[in-house]
Write a protein that binds this DNA or RNA. Structure first.
Lengths: 165, 165
DNA sequence: TCAAAGGCGTTATAGTATAACGTTACTTTC
DNA sequence: GAAAGTAACGTTATACTATAACGCCTTTGA
């Protein structure tokens, strides 16, 4: 149940290949529905972002593309990332200047993230409780909230156990 | 009451000079208590950050210092900002790479911000509701939250009225 | 007074992101 | 299926954000 909500980020031995292939399939479907073109390059960037549940920087992606012989410059990567962001296929972590795959693409939602400072993995939440608290607090001040970013750092279960404290 | 919680950010005609002088007085007191040195330069940077309720970038501060004839380079500004952050006198807005004055310094607290996309002003919250929702959601997944960043963008009361919609 | 620590100047560089322009490739319309 | 329009991409240059590293000077406390 928990791991269903959080995604498999903090489940060390999950079948990650399935994460990736499911993400790619869903992406293809989302793009089809939205009439967007998931070109090979965009698809490859998405796949690289999904290579782990850790946020990845744009310039790391750039190096990886180049290592594959793809002729890329910063705009190559940023364009792909912008496309993936616009279509809700990845998220940007503001506090890290880095990107992670979206675990429930298709439906727009606010970004809520647990970021483990031990293993660096990130789990995405979609918690009504948080959304409601945020919207209610804003509304109390006459502020109409349109979007919220919630980034929670700390230690995941696994890292807490293996770190003494 | 509301404006007490939110600070005066969204109150267009508040007496901003009082905001600034209070912030500087409080800062002096906080530093005294903590045995920290609020040097003229640090004080000046804090004052510049407080010049408005809009987040200000490090390089804007740098230009302002230089315009005053102060011989400054990027590290000058970043050192002052780091000091002010460490002592809880300012906050960094992750989604904007910019800084705002802290409206209730002294007591450590998580950063929760309302960012108006109309006037660019920022109000700081310290909402138990949000903190509780965040901590509860994290705990449900076995994650121990240590710090959270909440940045809410939208329109403040004033801008919503003056923007048609 | 002297040793240690802190603050700051200075230069260089790392890391993140976008502007602007031209070309190629896809798609739509006739 | 050719022309026109749009989207994707290559390329170069540059802007913006942040830190490393070293040395000097000032303050602090023994």
């Amino acid at each position: 149940m928990s791991s269903e909500t959080a995604g498999p980020a903090f489940t060390p031995r999950h079948d990650h290949d399935r994460c990736v292939s499911r993400a790619l399939e869903t992406a293809a479907e989302v793009c089809r529905r939205q009439g967007a073109r998931l070109t090979p390059q965009r698809r490859r960037v998405l796949e690289l972002v999904w290579a782990s549940h850790r946020p990845v920087g744009a310039y790391t992606l750039l190096e990886e593309l180049r290592a594959e012989g793809i002729n890329a410059a910063p705009p190559t990567v940023y364009r792909a990332l912008d496309f993936l962001l616009e279509h809700g296929l990845i998220h940007r972590l503001e506090s890290l200047n880095a990107f992670v795959g979206c675990t429930h693409p298709g439906k727009p939602h606010a970004g809520q993230f647990l970021v483990c400072r031990g293993c660096q993995e990130v789990a995405e939440l979609d918690e009504r409780r948080i959304t409601r608290a945020v919207e209610a607090s804003a509304a109390d001040l006459g502020f109409s909230a349109e979007h919220h970013t919630v980034e929670i750092s700390g230690l995941c279960d696994h890292c807490r156990e293996h770190a003494g404290e």
